[in-house]
Design a protein around this nucleic acid. Structure first.
Ligand SMILES: Nc1ccn([C@H]2C[C@H](O)[C@@H](COP(=O)(O)OP(=O)(O)OP(=O)(O)O)O2)c(=O)n1
Ligand SMILES: [Mg+2]
Ligand SMILES: [Mg+2]
Length: 1201
DNA sequence: ATCCTCCCCTAC
DNA sequence: TAAGGTAGGGGAGGAT
């Protein structure tokens, strides 16, 4: 890694050079030779040189640095103004029966829950583009003015609608008079059931005159916290869903959603959106909707599943009607302001029938104008629409769309993959380029480049060459239109491209639509600006520049590196632990000896470097030792120019948040005053918004915290000195830390680059030593080698060890014997429990709980009710000092992602696409270096709340945002950048966020699968030979739920008060004085034995063939698959034979059932272990069975699905 | 019951 | 100016 210079080498030439003992070096320790510069070069394992780094902070709440609100600001604020702000979150959170609280005045949280539950979307902040209604009870004039044109309604509108089971007209609930303009009453069709459906459909729909909005994500799925949401989309989904299969699809897939989204749009805003949705659908390429406009059908409107919405704005409608290029004339006639659009999603199965009903059977005629385009589509979406005049002012549009079934869609994706792959291979672009930040993705090939057919299409269509322009337009148009959201209202904040969209003509539209999805952009369009600036996302090298400077990226990457490092070490065959000899030697010189009675059955140590980044940095800045120091990027003390008024906006939230945090900080830091509050008051727009990554303990004494803005820190501690980051050194010190520990044991669990757990049981037993002696020795070695201090906490379990570390810091150690756990834990702050962050802390506050002792007063049931089943149970145990997790050195990654929520500033869709391309390449690169592929890709966006200032307080930060995400699952795992880019672009189109409002973008890959065995020898989940697997897995450590009997921490249990003990005994049905399994990991049967046992069982059953009941056989299969890491050849043979026997006996059904069951199990395993061996075993079995079938029936079983 | 998606939360 | 990433637990709600 490093250039071989030792830790200092990464520094600029002048500053490194060994200094005798820069830091408070260790005073030589007995057993070791005089310290040589410990940080001497060490060969580090070839881990990828990704950026390392990491950090942690205590749960105090500085992280958020306060500029993000904490929940339903608008609603909360109003409520607060009215003095009715009662945080009853605790209450509502737990109950499913929200209904109770719902009808009273709900808190912000409750409102959010209610809205989301019923398909609406809740926005923390008002978003012009997304928010349809602002819920408030009172607003200051200034706000009202600010929100001019928006609907401000009383929360009763929601609760009453719920009560009524339908969406009520919001008029009576509007707080400030608004021009209803053309908003005649909306005649919502009555939805079948509950308010649920209504809310979804309607809320959104409630047309916001402004029209600007929304949409977005609102589209169909529930977007994160938007208020409206989903309206239409949601509605359609749910409602329809219940009656048809379409529903399912919608939820899962792109295309389906699209459509629904469209529906939603219609409703929600009357605007032109109505038609757009369809357009969007097509654009996305997910599935194209072909809308055919036949004659008027009268039954259209009456159906229960139809939703109507009023078209409030005609202008665009006409323009957007173009998508239905086939019959523009009809559209023009039917769609205009005041129109009502009905949309129905039909179950594919009954589609044809429905079509006939509407006399539109020919909708898919080959000569249909859209047909040509559709040809390339993978999942055509069929649809029919009817427009009919209801009155002179009203036109009813009914659309019937057949959604592709899930299977179809999956197949389509699969096809795509294949296509792309082929192309890529041919072009040699299949391989991902370089990884991370370090490199740009110059060679990245745009997805479209790989899709010749698309190009072809384009040419066929002979689109005019205004392509570029059009393209951009399209994109924006589609987005806007799509969800019905935002686009429309040109007046207000029009999106750059809006106008153009409207100008498109039919032909262009078709063309463009296609283009949006696949057309390559012209070089100029795509190419990043030539400037060398890397300030924002539109600049060429932004991504790599950002990653190379991001402390959080380094932290996360290093965390992963060390988890893997530990994993690898733990799998080593013949480990040697040279440190133990040194330890023995050292021990001999220690006067203290272990006393029998002090021997603990279990000792876990938690080690964490003290103010890690600072400590490493101080090695080169010895002058600063003993002074308040912080690591930060900032060089000056603030922005060049004052930021201006926007500060006020976020300050509101900031203050609120800091206050809360302050409480927490205050208590945990023993400060007698709330530092946050103080800083808060002094912070202004001239202060630096650079984060303090780590600060020295001297700085902490002044109230400075990790994660704080430098500006705040300086207010609290004017003499604070800052030093710069040195990521390379952090990584080197981390390796020193891990390598040092690895010389003693491999029973380690990496937490981060500066922190880990160590299972000391064996060492302390083998070498008679006290826990503290071991800790002393280790810490001494670490300090000598690295020049950095660390602290250690020891206890009978991980929880106690961790809490002890906090007591030990800085540069200390602390052991909590099992006999003192009860007393120790009782005094701990509930907020300090791992897993209790800001939110939970707040909820505990409401309950009046501050310490663990107080928390212990709530029984488990109550906690579960309050915090959820698992969280409740976990809390229940944690506050009692009970933690049965075993130190786990093996690690299996479940997801890989690449995200950027800083510096994201776009103006055009092209830029977004280009960025997504780069991010896709980055992700592909990461997947590649891990030798895994993924089946599911999720696009995560942060969208600026529209009333949030365009530029937040934090320079280039994301500010207050709504988060939205959407995922797609492919038929087969992939990692080609072109495929990721293409899929992600589709997702992006669906979310239809306005480029200029994007503040964060991320792509996450899940459902990972290992490469085929043939491939590289990278690492991680790499498949090994069966033999290797056997040995490697001989020592698996699995995280067990706390409730697992085997995991009960008996040592601790023994120390608990009798009544608690009883409770636990009862809980687990334990014999009263169990003393078994003190090990912690003991309870779980040994893997090897396990395997054998399992196998035998299976074989026996199969052999006996006695098990004839399907259920029993299924269970058997399950056990077999769970029996061990690899399928045994013998078992495969036995099972195959058995199934072949069944075939011969004519038990086809049963065989089919069993095979499907097995397939499912095996597939699950594949995902879990990222291993293929079971899949292979399955294939093997299937071939044999099919062969048998051929023999007996001259046919094969249909195992699809 | 269990799975899946889309979040939220927490941690470093 | 500054570089607010990333993995994993868990919950809600819907589909199966
Ligand atoms: N908000 C944060 C928290 C941490 N870190 C980085 C810097 C820290 O040095 C490192 C390790 O995090 P810790 O939580 O262990 O914090 P420190 O090591 O700095 O202090 P402590 O002595 O409390 O462990 O991660 C960061 O960049 N931003
Ligand atoms: Mg740490
Ligand atoms: Mg630390």
């Amino acid at each position: 890694m490093s250039r071989g210079w030792g830790p200092w080498d990464s520094r600029p030439p002048g500053s490194y050079h060994f200094q005798p003992h820069p830091f408070g070096a260790p005073h030589g320790r007995p057993g070791m030779g005089p310290s040589r510069p410990p940080w001497q070069p060490q060969s580090y394992p070839r881990g990828n040189p990704r950026h390392p780094h990491h950090q942690h902070r205590q749960k105090r709440g500085w992280d958020g640095n306060g500029f993000e609100e904490w929940g339903g600001y608008m609603a909360a604020k109003k409520a607060k103004l009215q003095g009715q702000f009662q945080e009853r979150q605790g209450k509502n959170a737990a109950s499913n029966s929200t209904s109770a609280a719902i009808f009273s005045v709900p808190s912000a949280d409750e409102l959010k829950r209610i809205m989301m539950t019923h398909g609406g979307t809740y926005h923390h902040y008002y978003s012009r583009h997304h928010t349809t209604h602002i819920v408030a009870t009172n607003l200051p004039d200034s706000k009202v003015r600010e929100l001019k044109g928006e609907k401000i309604v009383h929360p009763d509108w929601i609760t009453h609608s719920l009560k009524e089971g339908r969406l009520l007209d919001d008029h009576p609930y509007q707080l400030y008079v608004r021009p209803p303009a053309n908003q005649a009453t909306i005649n919502f069709p009555k939805l079948d059931d509950s308010a649920k459906g209504l809310m979804k459909a309607e809320i959104p729909g409630a047309e916001r005159s402004g029209g600007e909005e929304n949409a977005d994500s609102a589209s169909s799925r529930n977007t994160g916290e938007k208020f409206t949401g989903v309206s239409g989309g949601g509605n359609a989904n749910k409602k329809v869903g219940s009656s048809t299969k379409a529903n399912t699809d919608v939820c899962t897939d792109v295309s389906a959603d699209e459509y629904l989204g469209i529906t939603g749009s219609h409703k929600r805003e009357a605007k032109s959106e109505s038609l757009l949705p369809l357009v969007n659908m097509q654009d996305q390429g997910v599935g194209r909707g072909i809308l055919y406009v036949p004659e008027i059908s009268k039954e259209a409107s009456g159906k229960p599943d139809l939703h109507s919405s009023r078209v409030t704005e005609s202008s665009e409608f006409n323009g957007e009607g173009l998508p239905f290029s086939g019959r523009p004339n009809i559209l023009e006639k039917c769609v205009k302001t005041g129109d009502v659009l009905d949309v129905q999603v039909v179950n594919p199965d009954s589609f044809d029938e429905e079509v006939k009903k509407f006399g539109a059977g020919s909708s898919m005629d080959s000569d249909h104008p859209l047909k040509g385009n559709c040809a390339s589509e993978r999942t055509p979406l069929e649809g029919v629409a009817c427009f009919r005049m209801k009155s002179k002012d009203e036109v009813c549009v009914t659309a019937i769309v057949k959604e592709p079934s899930k299977k179809e869609r999956e197949a389509a994706s699969l096809e795509d993959n294949v296509n792309c792959k082929t192309v890529e291979e041919g072009e040699g672009t299949g391989m991902v380029s370089k990884p991370l930040s370090s490199t740009t993705n110059e060679d990245y090939v745009l997805p479209h480049s790989n899709l010749p057919q698309n190009l072809k299409m384009t040419s066929e269509l002979e689109i005019p060459q205004k392509s570029e322009l059009s393209l951009a337009d399209d994109e924006s148009g589609e987005k806007h239109g799509k969800e019905g959201g935002r686009s429309q209202a040109p007046a207000i904040d029009s999106c750059d491209n809006e106008q153009e969209v409207m100008n498109l003509n039919e032909d262009d539209w078709d063309w463009e639509e296609e283009k949006v999805v696949i057309m390559p952009k012209s070089p100029e369009t795509v190419k990043p600006s030539t400037s060398h600036s890397t300030k924002s996302s539109k600049d060429a090298n932004f991504l790599s520049e950002f990653y190379s400077h991001s402390r959080l990226h380094h932290i996360a990457t290093m965390g992963a590196i060390f988890k893997q490092y530990v994993d690898e070490k733990s799998r080593r065959k013949n480990p040697s632990f040279p440190g133990l000899d040194r330890f023995r030697l050292w021990l001999q010189m220690q006067p203290e000896r272990v006393k029998e009675e002090d021997i603990e059955s279990r000792v876990i140590m938690h080690i964490d470097m003290d103010c890690f980044f600072v400590s490493v940095g101080l090695r080169n800045n010895p002058d600063l030792r003993g002074k308040p120091v912080a690591v930060t990027h900032s060089k000056s003390r603030g922005p060049i120019q004052p930021r201006g008024q926007d500060i006020q906006y976020e300050l509101e939230y900031y203050q609120k948040k800091t206050w809360e945090k302050g409480k927490k900080v205050g208590s945990s830091m023993l400060m007698d005053e709330n530092p946050g509050e103080k800083a808060n008051q002094l912070f202004d727009d001239t202060c630096s918004t650079a984060f303090v990554s780590s600060c020295s303990y001297e700085a902490r004494a002044a109230g400075v915290c990790n994660g704080m803005f430098l500006g705040e820190a300086l207010k609290l501690c004017p003499q604070l000195k800052t030093i710069t980051y040195d990521f390379e050194s952090y990584k080197q010190v981390s390796y020193l830390l891990y390598d040092t520990l690895a010389e003693f044991t491999h029973d380690l669990e990496a937490v981060s680059c500066d922190e880990m757990y160590v299972d000391c049981k064996k060492i302390l037993k083998d070498i008679k030593a006290t826990p503290l002696q071991f800790a002393s020795f280790l810490r001494q070695e670490i300090k000598e080698k690295s020049g950095c201090p660390c602290s250690a906490g020891l206890g009978p379990n991980m929880l106690v060890a961790r809490l002890a570390t906090k007591v030990a810091k800085p540069d200390g150690q602390y052991h909590v014997p099992s006999s003192q756990v009860g007393a120790f834990i009782a005094n701990q702050k509930a907020n300090d429990l791992p897993g209790v962050g800001w939110k939970l802390s707040k909820r505990l506050d409401i309950l009046g709980i501050k310490t663990c002792l107080e928390l212990q007063k709530l029984n488990e049931g109550r906690l579960q009710e309050e915090f959820g089943a698992k969280s409740g149970t976990t809390l229940y145990h944690l506050c009692r000092g009970v933690d049965n997790r075993a130190v786990t050195s093996t690690h299996q990654r479940k997801s890989v992602s690449a995200e950027v929520n800083y510096g994201i500033r776009f103006t055009k869709p092209d830029e977004v696409q280009e960025f997504l391309n780069q991010l896709s390449a980055e992700l592909a690169s990461r997947l590649s270096s891990l030798s895994v592929k993924a089946r599911t890709f999720t696009l995560k966006l942060k969208v600026r709340a529209l009333d949030a200032p365009v530029e937040p307080v934090k320079y280039m930060g994301h500010g207050v945002c709504d988060n939205i995400a959407r995922s797609v699952t492919l038929g087969i795992a992939a990692r080609e950048p072109s495929i990721i880019a293409r899929e992600v672009w589709k997702l992006h189109c669906q979310l239809s966020a306005i480029p200029s409002d994007l503040r964060g973008i991320g792509i996450q890959a899940t459902r990972l699968e290992a490469d085929d065995m043939s491939s590289s020898s990278s690492s991680v989940a790499k498949q090994q030979s069966i033999r290797d697997l056997m040995t490697a897995n001989a020592k698996p450590k699995k995280f067990q739920p706390l409730t697992e009997v085997g995991k009960i921490d008996f040592d601790v249990l023994a120390q608990l008060p009798p009544d608690i003990q009883d409770e636990i005994h009862k809980e687990y049905h334990l014999p009263k004085k169990t003393k078994v399994q003190q090990d912690g990991k003991g309870p779980i049967p040994k893997p090897t034995e396990n395997i054998k046992i399992g196998e035998q069982e299976k074989k026996k059953a199969a052999n006996l063939c006695g098990e004839t009941e399907t259920d029993a056989l299924r269970e058997l299969l399950h056990q077999w698959v769970a029996s061990g890491p690899i399928p045994q050849e013998e078992d495969v043979q036995v099972l195959s034979s058995f199934l072949c026997d069944l075939i011969q006996e004519g038990e086809l059904e049963k065989t089919l059932l069993l095979l499907k069951r097995l397939h499912r199990e095996v597939r699950k395993l594949k995902e879990e272990r990222q291993a293929n061996c079971w899949i292979e075993a399955y294939s093997c079995i299937v071939s044999r069975v099919q062969a048998q079938c051929l023999v007996n029936y001259n046919a094969t079983l249909d195992l699809s699905e």
